[in-house]
Computed example of a mutant assay.
Amino acid sequence: MDTRNILYFMAVYEHLHFTRAAEELGISQPTLSQQIRALENELGIPLFDRIGKKVIVTEAGKMFKHYGTKMLQAEMDIKTAATELKSGSQGEIRLAALPSDLDFRLVPLFVRFKTKYPDTRLQVISTIFAHEEVLSHKVDLGIGLQGSADDRLTRIPLGSEPYHLFVHADSKLARRKRITLEDLKDHPLVMYPKGYVGRDLVDATCRKLGFELSTAMETASAASLLQLVSAGIGATIQPAGLTRQNGKDYPDIVAIPLSGVEPVRHLELTYYADRFLTGAQRELIRWLTDFFSEMKTDGS
């Protein structure tokens, strides 16, 4: 079975549209259709149903997606292992991380890691969909919130962290030692948009208490949220250690612990359970687990 045809199948599976898939692949639509038909003929079963202009994945297509993904990963593992053995280099690492952790915590660790392993090519992407990026083999490792059980993934707990309220030092709330979520019902808040894991975690906690928080402004950037708090636009509810590494940049922001029922995030490091890990990838896993362990020790 030609690996190229598996890649063609994956593109159609993702877009459910032959023309858009062909454009992504850089080939003509008739060529793509011909290759998919050849793959279906080889398997002896249709992978897609063509109903008018709609493309629908068959049960066989869903099954092929599962095993095709494994075949592509196996080929990548073979090439990676062979390259590492041949060159003796430290290899390549693709890592997905939550935006706030990437912006405020992990960059100093990456600088130290790159200094010690200069031959390692490190690619880090900021995303709230770390698990999905790992499962689609777009990254090797992912740091995200604890997800539901999935036998395809190896999951390493990185610890738990409560959320705090971040307010401007001149706010009347800044004098409080602790505060409840209920106290914030009528206070202007700046938050991530709905659908972001941090926002959804806060909203879910509020729903348990029987109410919803309203926002004065929403933005997808943790740095922007802190700038808005610094400008006095509103307060924000974020992980307790958000500014710990960069507190000097926000001297006018006060972090207040939440009391009562509070949002808590549980972080984990994930990677595909049966994939080959290079020496560099295993080393970064060790660095990351040690890093978050030290943060727990420091009270972050």
Rank of each mutant, 00 (worst) to 15 (best):
Asp2Leu: 08
Thr3Trp: 08
Thr3Tyr: 13
Ile6Phe: 07
Met10Pro: 15
Met10Ala: 10
Ala11Asp: 10
Glu14His: 15
His15Ala: 12
Thr19His: 11
Arg20Asp: 15
Glu24Val: 10
Leu25His: 10
Gly26Leu: 09
Ile27His: 08
Ser28Gln: 12
Pro30Ile: 05
Pro30Trp: 01
Thr31Asp: 05
Ser33His: 11
Gln34His: 10
Ile36Pro: 01
Arg37Cys: 06
Arg37Ala: 12
Arg37Glu: 13
Glu40Thr: 01
Glu40Leu: 01
Glu40Cys: 03
Glu40Ala: 03
Leu43Trp: 04
Leu43Asp: 03
Ile45Val: 14
Pro46Ser: 08
Pro46Phe: 00
Ile51Glu: 10
Ile51Met: 10
Ile51Cys: 05
Gly52Leu: 07
Lys53Thr: 06
Ile56Ala: 02
Ala60Thr: 08
Ala60Met: 07
Gly61Asp: 00
Gly61Lys: 00
Phe64Cys: 04
Lys65Cys: 01
Gly68Asn: 02
Gly68Phe: 02
Lys70Asp: 13
Ala74Lys: 12
Ala74His: 03
Glu75Cys: 12
Lys79Gln: 14
Ala81Arg: 09
Ala82Phe: 00
Thr83Arg: 14
Leu85Tyr: 09
Gly88His: 05
Gly91Pro: 03
Gly91Met: 01
Glu92Ile: 10
Ile93Gly: 03
Ile93Thr: 04
Arg94Pro: 12
Ala96Gln: 09
Ala96His: 07
Ala96Lys: 08
Ala97Thr: 15
Leu98Asn: 11
Arg105Asp: 06
Arg105Thr: 07
Val107Trp: 13
Val111His: 10
Thr115Gly: 03
Lys116Leu: 03
Pro118Phe: 00
Arg121Ile: 10
Arg121Cys: 06
Leu122Ala: 03
Leu122Val: 07
Ile128Gly: 13
Phe129Ile: 05
Glu133Leu: 11
Val134Ala: 07
Ile143Gly: 12
Leu145Cys: 14
Gln146Ala: 12
Gln146Met: 09
Ala149Met: 03
Ala149Tyr: 01
Asp151Phe: 00
Ile156Asn: 04
Leu158Cys: 08
Ser160Trp: 02
His164Ser: 12
Phe166Asn: 04
Asp170Gly: 04
Ser171Pro: 03
Arg175Ile: 00
Lys177Thr: 05
Arg178Met: 06
Asp186Thr: 01
Asp186Gln: 12
Asp186Trp: 03
Leu189Tyr: 02
Val190Phe: 11
Leu201Asp: 06
Ala204Ser: 14
Arg207Trp: 05
Lys208Tyr: 10
Gly210Ala: 06
Phe211Leu: 12
Phe211Gln: 12
Phe211Pro: 00
Glu212Cys: 05
Ser214Asp: 13
Thr215Val: 00
Ala216Leu: 07
Ala216Asn: 04
Met217Lys: 13
Ser221Gly: 10
Ser221Leu: 12
Ala222Ile: 05
Ala223Glu: 09
Ser224Pro: 05
Ser224Cys: 01
Gln227Trp: 09
Gly232Cys: 01
Ile237Gln: 01
Ala240Gly: 09
Gly241Ile: 02
Lys248Asn: 13
Pro251Ile: 11
Pro251Glu: 14
Val254His: 02
Val254Ile: 11
Ala255Ser: 15
Ile256Asn: 02
Ile256Met: 04
Ile256Ala: 09
Ser259Asp: 13
Val264Trp: 09
Glu268Phe: 03
Tyr271Pro: 15
Phe276Gln: 09
Phe276Thr: 07
Phe276Asp: 08
Glu283Ser: 09
Arg286Ser: 11
Trp287Arg: 09
Phe292Lys: 08
Ser293Pro: 02
Glu294Ile: 14
Met295Gln: 14
Asp298Val: 08
Asp298His: 11
Ser300Gly: 15
Ser300His: 14
